[in-house]
């Protein structure tokens, strides 16, 4: 399984990457939406994207819209991991094509439980 972690905070990228690689994911990182688009274009398909909302260059919501425009990425599950916690924002992200939503702060359990909900394997 391959995952792309997109967050402007290096600390958060490290924490999420660590959580995913410890359950067998091969993880790539991007610091904002634009970089994520470049990584996506240059690599094999990803199974999962964890995406922050507020980022420079291109934000996570725009990134989700961008990814969902391209049917090539239909099998990529997208989960927002963000401090945006208004109900309206959750609705907006789901409507744009995000599959799941985690509100920061998060723990390992939360991330793993959400992955299971999306049908992804979570075995250490």
């Amino acid at each position: 399984m391959r995952a792309l972690v997109v967050d402007d905070s290096k600390a958060i990228r490290r924490i999420l990457s660590q959580m995913l690689s410890s359950i067998g994911f091969e993880v790539s990182e991007a610091a904002h939406g634009k970089e994520a688009v470049e990584v996506l274009a240059a690599s094999d398909p990803f199974d999962l994207g964890l995406i922050d909302w507020n980022m420079p260059e291109m934000n996570g919501f725009e990134l989700v819209c961008e990814i969902r425009k391209n049917s090539k990425y239909d099998n990529m599950r997208l989960m927002m991991v963000t401090t945006e916690t208004e109900m309206s924002q959750v609705v907006k992200a789901l409507e744009a094509g995000a599959n799941e939503y985690v509100m920061k702060p998060f723990t390992k359990e939360m991330i793993y439980e959400k992955l299971s909900l999306m049908g992804l394997p979570v075995s250490p």
Partner: peptide, 29 residues
């Protein structure tokens, strides 16, 4: 890294609090 980490804590705190204010509100980096 210290700045990154502290910035992210501020981001989480501010982001969570933002949802308590009237909509719409926007969060800076």
């Amino acid at each position: 890294d210290i700045q990154d980490a502290l910035g992210e804590l501020a981001n989480m705190t501010g982001g969570n609090l933002k949802a308590l204010f009237p909509e719409p509100c926007y969060l800076s980096l």
